[in-house]
Design a protein around this nucleic acid. Structure first.
Lengths: 141, 141
DNA sequence: GTGCAAGTTCAAGCCGACTTGAGGTCAAGC
DNA sequence: GCTTGACCTCAAGTCGGCTTGAACTTGCAC
């Protein structure tokens, strides 16, 4: 078989060997066997790692991802949950957009004192109040 | 004076008292004095907390924020740094947008096996590969 | 057959941003 | 004057997602 070792998998996926072991431990990926002590992986794991990466980047925790991947024959992914995540991303994108506009203005603002600029003050009030609570809360994305 | 106590400040800012003490310790805010043991705060701190919230939400660490706020007479904020942060946000927004589109598609996709859908597979490859490394890296936003 | 790079296990450490807990102080109301 | 409860300090704990270190084993090249 063309199973690959952990170093290969690490190199080809960009995920460090220690992380791969960690993922295996958490049930996110499985090795296809051992050669002696050494793990062997099916190259399909590469695709699974991409899927994991996508899910991570979308804001799922490893635990959630493990649950999704646990299904038999292909990942069991809850469509409603995906839609909810997409909605959350929409909100986050809007928020970041407002923030970016604020920063953009601040970086160009001619006011001698930034806090003297009414435009910036408004941004601080709006974004700083609301979004900060989100930033502090567990749910990053 | 109309200085307020830490409970008031917490209530009005949405930042917990323990966090406020932590911020003071880190030099992000200052109390204007004490009544006995108890801290008193100038209500202006509320605005400063909003600014901190904004900066946090924009992806600055508390340490960075402390450095920015350290200047005399109004925060000394580096315009170039702000512009860089805005650029970073732009990239992040683009990424999240692609991710959202992927999730949206996945949640609507009719393919019996999600991984059988070429569209989704492409998304996994593109987003899952690149963005995941970012997600894993320190720089969230 | 032997040297050694590359694997292994397991426990502990790290990061940032706080929170929590134990034990102490004190201003104000009864 | 005494209770009470809001505040105080300081150290330690939490969370997720790994990484690191120590001590060990192994497959492969020579």
């Amino acid at each position: 078989m063309s199973d690959i070792d952990i170093a290969q998998l690490a190199r080809r996926s960009g995920v460090r060997a220690s992380a791969l072991r960690y993922y295996e431990d958490k049930g996110l990926i499985a090795s296809s066997g051992r050669r002696g002590l050494k793990r062997l992986f099916d190259p399909e794991v590469l695709e699974r790692l991409s899927l994991i990466g996508l899910a991570q980047a979308a804001g799922f925790s490893l635990e959630e991802i493990a649950a999704m991947l646990a299904g038999e024959g292909g990942p069991r992914i809850d469509k409603a949950e995906l839609a909810a995540k997409a909605d959350a991303l929409d909100r986050r994108i809007e928020e970041l957009t407002r923030m970016r506009d604020g920063l953009r203005h601040a970086s160009a603002c001619q006011a001698p004192e930034l806090m003297g600029c009414p435009h910036f003050r408004r941004i601080v009030r709006v974004v700083g109040g609301e979004a900060a609570r989100r930033a502090r809360s567990r749910f990053r994305v």
